[in-house]
Design a protein around this nucleic acid. Structure first.
Length: 962
RNA sequence: GCAGGGAUGGCGGAGCUUGGUCAAACGCGCUAGGUUCAGGGCCUAGUGUCUUAGGACUUCGAGAGUUCGAAUCUCUCUCCCUGCACCA
């Protein structure tokens, strides 16, 4: 009979709704607040997203069964730019986007059109996503729903930022951002064409003084340490240069750079154009190396790009392949060069095999002729010369750069003897401190990045930007302390990562010029950045439904109100007056917050580890009193389908609505929460796994229907075995659940159970009471993951209560019988052994065309196991012989274990009589399995020649052929 | 570059926290046999190498070490993945 999931889901969802099972208020039970990162409203969710929510829901349901009063609420996130970006793309008739919405998410064209209005978009997606959560049977208390752009939410954020300011955590500063000069806005990843991430790197521009004027050549480089090897300066002879006035921290100087560079850098430097200059004019000049004070000429370089850095580079032919080749080419063209001295600035540390330069280069083409010029050495061994392409040179440059950074030891100058990366930093600092260089930011992407409007993105340094200063020392150490002392982290193995992230996080933008959200109090033209405004909102769940029920106007929610709710600060009557609210409302809010917020579990995908979860923790430490610190954080891995990551942009998604139709809520929940470890990416062939779950569910369902066919006679060996398995299963599963290890928990609870039930039935287990006890416990334990199916089974088992409100089963330690389990293991091993013996002996000529007629299983005498264990203990045959009073033959038996005695371990003590009864109970089963007579004998009474071969816990087997 | 993580049989992926019962769960694939089985169904056995009785040998990225004993602990090396900020 196949199961009508859709009907079952619908039926129980309605019954739960009617009984308001998930609408909870403070009571005498211990509280637990389970929250998951609220979904972002720029797209409907796909089934991959459900993993986080399903895990949170399963925990919520489990904890309810463990006696907690659990609140699982949900809200929606709309602040920031993505919602706007979608609206804008729809407005611009973005075909790609519209196709996704239409074809994948089945949104009617009419609605798509209306989504050009971001608020329509928000409402629409809330509707879709909420329905998805309902269909997935989450135990959400919907009375507490909110969206992050509604006024009540904003009031909370304003209060939060007031506190952050008060505590001095808000600071202004300089910061480089990707910038669109057309729209005059910062560009984030989804503002760029192809959602390119703008990679920004800090470079250094070293100032070489022009000998013939007071101006400087600004040479931009990654490797200031190569300054010792500079032979000349390269410029591009085909582009326009300018002279500009630079005001660098009121240190005024004139600099040369390309016109294009000027246009870019005016957004990050304080510079003014003085005049344009021809490249040819610069080519007649010389400049002074600020470190070595040597005078070097200005020379044309073919590779110098006008729009990169300043359009001027310093030439280090000894270590830079491009520089070396440029000089070589000039020479070949007949350009008259001075005789440069190529100075080697570092030595490559030798590898164990004694290899120096080129040690990390895999397939070396040639042998180097000259190791005094490293750039040349690399070119030679890589088979590259001045005629090679720029790509080849780029490759060589990378090879040099990485090897020298890895193994380079500086052999010149002030920092002689130190490693290259260290010297780079030291020199950078020196040069900047002494005004011999300026810092310049550059886009590190391969090729230019474009804004969606088509303009090339440049770097702007904003200097009135507000940041949240997560670098604050006290705040940082307090946060780490809370994290390490009070927060349970799942998976625990992220703790190390997390600690280093807590250290790493520093300034973080608090506001931005665009996007939906709460106005930034310190600059009302800006809104609060949307990661910063989603850190403490779980508090809102605890009382927002009270505010709504009492029709409290958002304007009433003054800081005094929040201060009272969170700190119980101030006089409640005063607070009621200032916020024009009922005293009782405020009191209720306070009580509710205090009740729920002491025990929280926070859930999100592991991709939010480095941002949301960090800020969640920091902000909790900043805002809340000790008692309300986070207690638990759960980060789950992502979902892959058929080996491909589910991603909105890839379009390989099943929207939630489709997924539920196709797979049904309960089986899908089962897969998402229990197939993979919580920390690993879930990588499944959904159809395959789901059909496995269908089969198992049907097995359970049918077994309950067939319960009447069984009887309730006296308990036999196999009944005790099933009870033993059940109780140890409950014990193990409960331990796993407590550790948030759903995977292992459910392979015990669910997947292993079918094997056990099958063994039980095959072994002629027929006790309806035993089966019922077993299935009831399974039903209870699958309820957190497959709630409606469990509910259906629970009803079939004759209960009238909701299974989701039942207690998690407890186990009876006395029913766990290791001996019986061990005996079963021995039987299973014996079956394996019989199989391999039959396989092997069937090849014997004498057995050709024959079949086994019977199999003898001969159980070892008790003394063998005793002696064996004793031998392991004392490791001395004589002692065992003496102590147990064994004769010659028996001592000989023990001798076989001596060669490996040190590596053998003790065995479980099972008496031969017990073993015999176990085998007798399995006799029919073995008989039908091998389709032959099974004879069970004891070693002492057996006449078989193989009898004495019986080993402790390993019966001797004799296969008798016809 | 900085930080974090990883490397296991044809594949995916357990086990490694607490070293032994690990030739290594589970699933997929593959092979053989069965099934009144018509087309990705079910059952049984096999699937590192060798083996005429349940055994032996070699394996868990490479190398070295600790130990009676290592996939599991230590060290070195190689390779791979992820994140790096104003962006949800």
């Amino acid at each position: 009979m196949s199961i009508e999931y859709k009907l079952i889901e619908e039926k129980w969802r309605q019954k739960w709704d009617e009984a308001k099972v998930y609408e909870v208020e403070p009571n005498e039970k211990p509280a637990m607040l389970v929250t998951a990162a609220i979904p972002y409203l720029d797209m409907p969710l796909h089934i991959g997203h459900l993993r986080t929510y399903s895990t949170a829901d399963a925990l919520a349901r489990y904890k309810r069964m463990r006696g907690f009063n659990v609140l699982f609420p949900m809200g929606f996130h709309a602040t920031g730019t993505p919602v706007l970006a979608i609206a804008k793309r729809i407005k611009n008739n973005d075909v790609q986007l519209i196709n996704i919405l239409r074809n994948i998410h089945h949104i009617p064209d009419d609605d798509i059109k209306k989504m050009a209005d971001p608020y329509y978009e928000v409402d629409y997606f809330i509707k879709v996503i909420r329905q998805g959560f309902i269909d997935t049977l989450y135990s959400i208390d919907w009375r507490r729903e909110f969206v992050s752009i509604e006024p009540i939410f904003s009031k909370m954020i304003e209060w939060q930022f007031g506190l952050l300011k008060e505590k001095g955590y808000l600071v202004t500063g300089r910061h480089p951002v990707g910038w669109c000069t057309n729209e005059n806005n910062p560009v984030g990843q989804h503002d760029t064409k192809g959602d390119t991430h703008v990679k920004i790197d800090e470079l250094i521009g070293i100032k070489f003084k022009d000998t013939s004027s007071d101006a400087y050549f600004v040479c931009v480089t990654y490797r200031p340490e190569t300054i010792y090897g500079v032979t000349n300066i390269f410029i591009n002879k085909d582009v326009k240069y300018v002279l500009a006035k630079l005001n660098d921290n009121s240190n005024i100087s004139n600099i040369y750079l390309t016109k294009e560079a000027f246009e870019n850098l005016k957004y990050q430097l304080n510079i003014e154009l003085i005049k344009e200059i021809d490249a040819s004019e610069l080519l007649s000049k010389e400049a002074i190396n600020p470190i070595t004070n040597e005078t070097v000429p200005v020379i044309p370089g073919f590779f110098v790009k006008a729009d990169t850095g300043s359009g001027i580079v310093m030439s280090v032919p000894s270590h830079a392949p491009f520089d070396y080749v440029a000089l070589k080419r000039l020479e070949n063209e007949g350009y008259k060069l001075p005789s440069f001295k190529y100075i080697k600035i570092l030595e490559i540390e030798k590898s164990e095999e004694g290899k120096g330069i080129g040690r990390s280069i895999q397939d070396q083409k040639n042998v180097a002729t000259n190791e005094d010029i490293p750039a040349l050495t690399y070119l030679e061994i890589m088979g590259i010369d001045e005629k090679s392409s720029e790509d080849a040179l780029e490759l060589a440059t990378k090879a040099v750069y990485s090897e020298e950074a890895h193994y380079g030891i500086i052999i010149i100058g002030e920092y002689k003897g130190k490693r290259e990366p260290e010297v780079r930093e030291l020199l950078k600092k020196d040069l900047l401190m002494s005004n011999k260089a300026i810092s310049i930011y550059s886009i590190m992407n391969d090729g230019p990045v474009y804004c969606r409007c088509g303009t090339k993105v440049i770097i702007k340094v904003v200097d009135d930007q507000w940041f949240i200063n997560y670098g604050d020392k006290k705040w940082k150490s307090k946060t780490k302390e809370v994290f390490n002392n009070t927060v349970k982290l799942y998976p625990e193995k992220y703790r190390h990562t997390y600690n280093s992230l807590l250290d790493w996080i520093d300034l973080r933008a608090a506001e931005r010029s665009q996007g939906l959200g709460t106005k930034f109090p310190l600059n009302p033209n800006h809104v609060i950045e949307s990661l910063s405004d989603s850190t403490i909102y779980p508090m809102l769940y605890t009382f927002i439904h009270i505010l709504r029920a009492e029709n409290v106007a958002p304007e009433s929610l003054k800081p005094e109100f929040f201060n009272y709710v969170v700190y119980e600060k101030g006089d409640i009557e005063e607070v009621a007056k200032t916020s024009s609210m009922n005293l009782s409302t405020i009191k209720k809010c306070r009580e509710s917050f205090d009740y729920w917020y002491k025990n929280t579990s926070r859930h999100s995908g592991s991709d939010l580890l480095a941002n949301h979860l960090l800020m969640y923790l920091y902000n909790h430490v900043a805002i809340f009193p000790e008692a309300y610190m986070p207690k638990q954080i759960v980060a789950n891995g992502l979902v892959y389908l058929e080996g491909v990551k589910m991603s909105k942009s890839l379009g390989n998604v099943d929207p939630v609505s489709d997924g539920i139709k196709k797979y049904h809520a309960d089986p899908l929940r089962m897969v998402e929460t229990t197939i993979a470890d919580i920390d690993s990416n879930l990588e499944v062939k959904l159809d395959e796994v789901i059909s496995g779950i269908y089969l198992r569910n049907e097995f359970l369902y049918n077994l309950i229907n067939d319960l009447y066919k069984f009887n309730g006679k006296e308990l036999t060996h196999i009944d005790y075995w099933l009870y033993s398995r059940l109780n140890s299963k409950i014990k193990a599963a409960t331990e796993y659940m407590e550790k948030m290890n759903f995977k292992n928990a459910y392979s015990e609870i669910y997947f292993n159970s079918f094997n056990e039930l099958n063994i039980y039935l095959e072994r002629n287990g027929r006790n309806s009471i035993v089966i019922r006890d077993y299935i009831e416990a399974i039903t209870l334990m699958i309820a957190p993951v497959m709630p409606s199916f469990a509910e259906e089974l629970w009803q079939m088992l004759g209960h009238s209560s909701f299974v989701v409100k039942e207690k998690w089963p407890s186990f009876d330690e006395s029913m766990i019988n290791e001996k019986i389990d061990e005996a079963e293991n021995i039987i299973i091993h014996t079956i394996d052994d019989i199989n391999s013996i039959i396989t092997l002996t069937s090849k014997i000529d004498a057995n050709k065309n024959k079949k086994p007629s019977s199999i003898k299983i001969i159980i070892a005498d008790d003394w063998k196991l005793k002696a064996y264990n004793k031998l392991i203990e004392v490791k001395n045959i004589n002692e065992v012989v003496k102590e147990l009073g064994l004769e010659g033959e028996k001592a000989k038996f023990l001798a076989q274990f001596m060669p490996k005695i040190k590596s053998l371990i003790k065995m479980h003590e099972i008496e031969s009589a017990y073993m015999q009864s176990a085998f007798i109970s399995a006799q029919d089963y073995l008989k039908s399995k091998f389709n032959v007579d099974i004879i069970i004998e004891m070693e002492s009474t057996s006449k078989s020649a193989r009898a004495q071969r019986a080993l402790p816990n390993k019966p001797s087997i004799e296969v008798i052929w016809q």
